[in-house]
């Protein structure tokens, strides 16, 4: 029973890949958020620059960062995510 190679459900391969994409996106999201916030925001307040009246660290980290992630999610879902059926083939459900 153990020795025989199990054929994995083809849908699980897709699911595994999409989960990895999720982890990668979250890491990217975190690096962007952290990098801009503390990279630009650690200076003394007198040296802050402003974009649309908001401190630049906040603008790039939270606003541009959010828009970037939203666009990435849209692109990833459109181009890398596959439609799969959820019910079992040849099953009653």
């Amino acid at each position: 029973m153990k020795g025989m190679q199990e054929k994995e459900d083809w849908r699980f391969k897709i699911a595994n890949r999409e989960a990895l994409i999720g982890v990668a996106l979250a890491l990217f999201n975190f690096v962007w958020w952290f990098g801009f916030a503390y990279g630009l925001g650690s200076r003394p307040v007198e040296e802050y620059t402003y974009v649309f009246g908001l401190p630049s660290w906040f603008f790039y980290s939270c606003i541009v960062g959010f828009i970037t992630i939203a666009v990435l999610v849209i692109l990833v879902v459109r181009f890398f995510f596959k439609e799969v059926p959820f019910t079992e083939e040849g099953d009653e459900q």
């Binding site: 849908r11 699911a15 595994n16 999409e18 989960a19 999720g22 982890v23 799969v84």
Partner: peptide
Amino acid sequence: YFVLMILGKKFAI
């Protein structure tokens, strides 16, 4: 996005 991508299709299936 994270929750649905991680639990995702495998959990639904």
